[in-house]
Amino acid sequence: MTSMSNNLLKIEDLTVRFHGLVAVDHVSFQVEPGTVHGLIGPNGAGKTTCFNLISGLIPPTSGRAILAGAPLVGPSWKRTRAGLSRTFQNIRMFQEMTVRENVMTGMQARLHASVPEILSRLGRFRKEETAAKVRADELLEFVGLAASADRRAGDLSYGDQRRLEIARAVASGPKLLMLDEPAAGMNPTETRELVELLLRLKQDGLTLLLVEHDMHFVMSLCDRITVLNFGRKIAEGTPREVRENPDVIEAYLGAKVAERLKGGTA
């Protein structure tokens, strides 16, 4: 089979079984480059598990993920070096580090100064370190945290930590950025700012795959949506198609409500 279709990320039959529970059950979908792709579903549908499989935090029982034509294999750090980046549902900031240091830590895959170069402060070291610092400050400017660069990351407000996590994830220069519930716990103003930030990332050519519960957020941002329920893919399409899909309505609202809605519109 030749995959001549235009995709950046291709998920093929991804499956993971935890002691009899099939958390992700033969899920396949594709993310087109330059788009925002949503992965939605009720609680426990397997969205975060899907993210963990793609980013290499847990090994799949079967199936695979292919990024830009190359299968993603091995632990997470190798996948980051292959062009994948992600954020976490429960923010995982390096709290003790400063905001700038957090973003610079995101650049690990792009910094190559050897230990002798580091100890002697010669060779690639100074140039690379200065460039990293400049780039970190640019990214902080981009997400609106420039003024907080030298603050302890753990002291930032929740919304600011979310934005810092995005800056840190973008710092690796990924082909695909995966965001796990980026708007969770944000107030409406913060959510609006986040939508705007993510759209700017998209404009810059970055492809986004995101898990989110806030439907308004998902519908206003995503180009395509894949819907999971009980580990299985139940629908896929544009936001409009997904919103009108009876299986999706049933998954979210239950069969009875779906029936009544159908009756109401008929």
Binding site: P75, S76, W77, T80, A109, R168, S172
Partner: peptide, 15 residues
């Protein structure tokens, strides 16, 4: 320092 604080996140940084 990243590894000491959160090894999972450190791995995702490409370390």
């Amino acid at each position: 320092e990243a590894m000491r604080e959160d090894e999972v996140a450190a791995g995702v940084m490409g370390i």
